[in-house]
Amino acid sequence: MVTSGHQGTVCRDGNPTVLPVVHNWSLLNVARVIRAILKCKPDIVHFQFPTNGYFDVLVPILGVLPKGPKVVVTMHEPLSVKPSRLPWVFRPIRNWLSIASADAIIVVAQSYAEFLHGVSERMRRIPCELIPIASNIPVSQLSTEAVREVRRQLGIPRGTLVLTYFGFVHARKGFDQVLDLIKILEQRKVAAVILVLGELLGRDPYQKDLLDRISNDPVLRSAVKVLGYLDSDAIADHLAVSDACVLPFVDGVHPKRGSFLAALDQGIFIVTTSDPPKGYIADENVYYAKQGDIDAMALAVQRHAAPRRSAASHPVRTWEAVAQEHLRLFKRLLQ
């Protein structure tokens, strides 16, 4: 908003005004938040969900105020049915009152909008805007020669397949399947290394098991290179170095997966999971395997892994675009 010249009460000289009124989400504090909103007299109040803290009351209260602000609600997570504790009360989804009371809804995935529209006629009447998020990782500017130099510095022999894994290492991300994939490639006489762009310190039983497995297996001990925490530029460069990024999410990829978006923006080949599996999508340079189908992932790596595409060959979504799409929606609401 600042770079677009849209400055107002909460945004002066590029610095947003923070109102330190949310000490907790007790009902007493909800009243304090409402008073602060009314005093500020905004044109639009934008709520970001998921959260259970609002008690489903803030949005409905603002919605019934005479000459109150327009209320926009963003749903960032997949929606699910949640039966009410009282069988005669209609509350099919979490935060239903807030969603039903909004003047507009923003979703980050088309499937979220389809779910909402299937709930009730009331939901179908509320304007619903699809605004996907962007990646927080920039696009690497490494040249082909610079990529070779990074590989040399990492001690990776020529002809070795370079795979990357980016993100937190925990069970839902399926990192154990990455190790399985490395073993399958080794059995197929494919030399490969995996660069882990994240920390693997044995802080929980899952990570401890992974470290034990790596240390006790000569193939994995040689192939797994844990680079630890890196800044955003270094993450981009190491993704750009790889022939493939392997992201075997246990519950499948969805549009808010930052690691997937970061890899997608680099133009590298990605192996991930989805339900249903979609196979190789050439325009995206992504192979979508069934969750847990490690053989299919390994075969996809063998078939499609390659140096990254040029930046001009694929669209890169920016946060500027995200902001502009929000502004267009806000303007329509105020017309």
Rank of each mutant, 00 (worst) to 15 (best):
M1H: 14
V2W: 15
G8C: 09
V18P: 09
L19I: 14
V22T: 13
H23V: 13
W25K: 00
W25E: 05
L28T: 06
V30K: 13
R32H: 12
K39I: 03
K39V: 08
D43K: 01
V45C: 00
Q48V: 00
P50D: 01
T51P: 02
T51M: 05
Y54A: 09
F55E: 09
D56F: 07
L58P: 01
L58N: 01
I61N: 02
P66C: 02
K67P: 01
G68M: 04
M75I: 04
P78D: 09
P83Y: 14
R85F: 12
R85A: 11
V89I: 10
F90V: 09
N95K: 00
W96S: 07
S98A: 10
A100P: 00
S101K: 03
Y112S: 00
R122H: 05
R122D: 03
R124V: 05
R124D: 02
C128N: 11
I133C: 05
I133Q: 06
N136I: 12
I137H: 11
V139M: 06
Q141G: 14
L142K: 15
L142A: 13
A146L: 10
R148G: 11
R148T: 13
R151W: 03
G155R: 01
I156Q: 10
T160A: 02
L163T: 07
L163Q: 05
Y165Q: 03
A171N: 13
R172H: 15
G174T: 04
G174W: 13
I184C: 00
V190F: 00
V193M: 00
V193Y: 00
G198W: 05
L200F: 07
L200I: 02
G202D: 07
K208Y: 06
K208E: 15
K208S: 08
L210F: 03
L210M: 07
D212T: 11
R213C: 09
P218W: 02
V224G: 01
K225R: 15
V226P: 05
Y229N: 05
V241D: 14
S242V: 10
D243F: 14
C245L: 09
P248W: 03
P248R: 06
P248Q: 02
F249A: 08
G252T: 04
K256V: 14
K256M: 14
S259V: 07
L264Y: 12
F269H: 09
S274D: 04
P276Q: 05
K290S: 14
D295G: 07
A298N: 04
L299Q: 11
A300E: 14
Q302H: 14
R303C: 09
R308F: 05
R309P: 02
A311V: 15
W319M: 07
A321N: 08
Q324A: 11
E325M: 11
L327C: 04
L327A: 08
L327D: 08
L327W: 09
R328K: 11
L329C: 01
K331T: 14
